[in-house]
Design a binder for these strands. Structure first.
Length: 268
DNA sequence: CGAGTCCTGTGT
DNA sequence: ACACAGGACTCG
């Protein structure tokens, strides 16, 4: 479900409830949630103090410490994972994280795609991720984009290129930059690549300020919804008139994902 | 590259 | 009954 803005919203909402608190207990209601053995993970997590909570692309990293030894709990929400502070467990609750002196974190995940992983060091996978889209400079982004070839949309979805973009914000950024989703990234002009850099920054920061997008059932950690879905220009707007030129928005498949664009504003 | 896989729910 | 869903891995 969540892309960078939704994960950022969740992390901001969770931080004040978890940072500096100690994990009292973890209940895995669906043992497949955690990679490895659930009992072993529970034993490791009990008694750990959460020293920091960070977002790394679409990953949530709980930094942990017990005495001198540091470790971390890495969570990826995938399509339908979510944390609610002090919520009531329901049919889709997969885990409950009990914290000393604070409300429990209830983890829901309808489709069971999300994963929790405990480890002593940051998993290598996180090291393979590309830069944060809101941190990379235009000077670094433009040559990085033009050095790759393949369809622009596929590149934006590739977490090794940039970490955090997903289907909604990839479509919205390409629309704002007037780039066809199937455009070859190597052939995008420097000016247009600079425009894409700005478009990505703008769409992500606007979405964060709106608390992310609530398409189906996403809510933030306090249980309220985001509002950016009301502002999308192309995502989920198939057949509706383009806000700029009034041509009907089209839906095609790119990189095996449903892709929305304006055939007039985004020419190949 | 695309297709299949992991899952469950919703809308047509 | 079927298509589709905010993700990402594995395979051919």
């Amino acid at each position: 479900m969540p892309e960078l803005p939704e994960v950022e919203t969740i992390v901001r909402g969770l931080s004040r409830h978890v940072v500096n608190r100690r994990i009292q207990n973890v209940e895995f209601l669906w043992p497949g949630l955690v990679t490895g053995d659930a009992e072993e993970a529970t034993a490791h997590l009990r008694g750990q103090r959460v020293t920091a909570l960070r977002r790394h692309g679409k990953y949530i990293v709980f930094e942990l410490q017990r005495r001198r030894s540091k470790s971390c709990l890495v969570v990826h929400l995938r399509m339908t994972g979510n944390f609610i502070v002090g919520g009531d467990p329901g049919p889709h609750t997969r885990a409950v994280l009990h914290l000393e002196g604070g409300p429990a974190l209830v983890y829901h995940d309808i489709r069971k795609f999300g994963r929790w992983q405990w480890s002593e060091q940051l998993p290598h996978r996180l090291g393979d991720l590309g830069p944060e889209p809101l941190e990379i400079s235009q000077e670094d982004f433009v040559p990085r984009l033009r050095a790759r070839r393949g369809m622009a949309k596929a590149l934006l979805l590739n977490q090794e290129f940039l970490r955090g973009l997903g289907n909604i914000y990839a479509d919205e950024a390409l629309f704002r930059a007037r780039i066809h989703p199937r455009a070859d990234s190597a052939k995008i002009s420097k000016a247009r690549a600079a425009g894409l850099h700005a478009a990505i920054r703008n769409v992500l920061s606007e979405a964060i300020s709106q608390g992310g997008s609530t398409i189906n059932n996403y809510v933030n950690s306090e249980g309220s919804q985001g509002y950016f879905q009301l502002r999308t220009a192309v995502y989920g707007k198939t057949g509706e008139p383009c806000k700029v030129c009034a041509a009907p928005i089209r839906r095609i498949i790119v990189a095996s994902r449903s892709t929305h664009f304006c055939p007039r504003c985004q020419r190949r």
